[in-house]
Amino acid sequence: MNEEIKAIWKSLFDWVMGNGPRPENEVIPDEPPPDLPFTRKPKDKYSRFHEATLKERYNQWLEIHGLHMFSSLYSGISVLTCIVIVSLLLATVSELPSLSDERNLANNEIIRRYVERGGKETGAQNIVAGLILNYRAFNTFGESAVLFTAAVSVLMLLGASRRNNADDEQSMKGNDSGKNFMQRGPPSVRLHTFRRDDAILRGTASISIPVILIMGCVIIINGHLLSGGAILSTALILCANAYDFERVHKFFNEQIFITITSTSLMIYALSNIFNGGLILLPNICIGLIVAGTLYGFYALLSEGEI
């Protein structure tokens, strides 16, 4: 019985950790002696027999087990925290009022006004689009700014370092002792390359890219926010995969990426400041920002450049 439970537990553990199936006659080797990253060179100070003092033994023990102990302590604490948080939240959400309850404070005049007068006041067909583009436009501006921040950060981390690696090394030489020692990734090796002359993919792409583009434009103009931009970026990603990355690179390089993102965000910010209740212009701007940044993310993460 006990063995069975152990076997079930093992298979569950394997499944969770993503290990492959275990062979029947598996022999688990003895644990190799642990690497000792913190061990200093041994000191032969003592010529005669010397019994280790408590402190020395403690230090020895700590060097072998310290990292392991710290990590188990950390995981213990985090498991405890998670359990506490989850049980507190379980107790909380079971007490929360439901929205159909008349006494619920959330059932207030705000959503009623959004639903009843939203269409008239904002001119939006879709209440949610009216909500995020007009009633709560500042939040949506913040959200595009988050996308912009992430795009700039990723570009700085991945794009800027690989493009002019040689220049960097020239100008940074000898500034910090840590730098000589640093290992950089090879400048222009693609992390993940596969053959790009796939006939099926190409055939599909040649039909579907125009459809996707039209679909994206229609959605952007019709005001279902964001998905339009994401669909446009899908077309670009498909193009980069089916044909060649260089081909997309010709008309969508870093300069254009930055220009499109910044300009649309700028127009969006200005339309936010001088708000005239416009809904089409912000919609197009957000669509362009999302399309640009999502394709930028894809290109930077998979190719290392735009």
Partner: peptide, 8 residues
């Protein structure tokens, strides 16, 4: 690095 300063 110089090419990062602008984005910084």
């Amino acid at each position: 690095a110089p090419n990062r300063r602008q984005l910084f």
